[in-house]
Design a protein around this nucleic acid. Structure first.
Ligand SMILES: [Zn+2]
Ligand SMILES: [Zn+2]
Ligand SMILES: [Zn+2]
Ligand SMILES: [Zn+2]
Lengths: 175, 175
DNA sequence: ATAGAAAGGTTATAGAGTAACATAGCAGGA
DNA sequence: TCCTGCTATGTTACTCTATAACCTTTCTAT
């Protein structure tokens, strides 16, 4: 496509996208569910960087890409499908959505979210999940889903701002 | 402070409220901030049970109690104050707010939320907070706030539904 | 008293999500 | 093939959540 957007300055983000899309395709075939054009397009847009994307931002991107109006239910239905299949996660803190790098294995939603650059890093810590389940069990609580959203500064942004107070080159603008 | 804020069917909730309000008063005096009538009223409404309350529900309750219209900014400003002072927490999963039973000690927001009865139980697990900080540090991430929202069934509801499929007497109606 | 700051009131609008119903596209079976 | 039902998408309208901007009131300190 046109560009490799920001955030991931140090890795080939094109691979993130193509790998994720290919994995999604195979997963859906295996499950007998339909990864339609629209759903694939939404997933692709979400994967364009590592920042969570709001439904309305996504809507505008869709409208632009398809040169016609797209209404909220259209994008929300696609998002619902992707959530059900575990292909994306919802970040409640931001009312936004982000691609899951390991959709084939069921897991909980644990994220580190940088307040400076907006990147969201998914944790892969089954032990943490287990500890949370244990704590809940001690209270007689039966866990169904977990959402851990840690806010702060990512390695990049912490490094940049500990020397001087203002960020450079992070592009956390108005998108 | 002595009550276990679990499944509030069996504890004197009047004490929850009066204790919380008295603690809030003293805390604000100590900090030199103003717990105004409005703010106190909002806090009191929030403490009326252990379920998170939405801003608009709160708005209606305020309007009814004061027999005059209350606009969104009014309640949101009160909520912002209470959040800043740590007197309440925000549950992102529900877009709702709940009273904090231990506002005098700084801590993270860790909740068990029952999808059946709506109760939200705040965890008090500094070790869990520490473990999360540790995991983040391994990724070079500098933690500022944590939000853990675990959804599932509380002891009460799990007990009631494990014998038969449908709930009884839970009152998770339209309030 | 008076000035400045903090809090609250008012209006309007932005942002996020859903209900309800209509249409289109894809199946499987006669 | 045509029919039929199911799934996905389009469309309109609406609800719920949250904030911007501006004004008035109340508190506080001098
Ligand atoms: Zn994931
Ligand atoms: Zn960052
Ligand atoms: Zn608390
Ligand atoms: Zn319950």
């Amino acid at each position: 496509m046109e560009h490799t957007p920001l955030a991931c300055s140090h890795h080939d983000h094109g691979h993130c996208i193509t790998d994720a899309l290919e994995a999604a395709r195979q997963l859906c075939v295996g499950r007998g569910v339909r990864l339609t054009d629209l759903r694939l397009q939404v997933l692709e847009l979400i994967w364009q960087n590592h920042k969570p994307l709001g439904a309305y931002t996504l809507m505008e991107m869709l409208a632009k890409a398809n040169t016609r109006r797209v209404a909220p239910p259209t994008v929300y239905r696609a998002l619902d499908f992707l959530l059900e299949q575990g292909l994306i996660h919802r970040i409640n803190l931001l009312n936004a959505f982000i691609g899951c790098p390991s959709p084939s294995t069921k897991h909980q939603s644990h994220f580190l979210i940088c307040r400076a650059c907006g990147i969201a890093i998914e944790l892969n810590q089954p032990e943490l999940s287990q500890q949370i389940i244990g704590v809940a069990q001690d209270a007689g609580f039966q866990v169904e889903t977990q959402s851990l959203e840690v806010s702060g500064l990512c390695a990049n942004c912490a490094g940049n701002t500990e020397h001087d107070g203002h960020e450079h080159g992070h592009g956390h603008g108005h998108e």
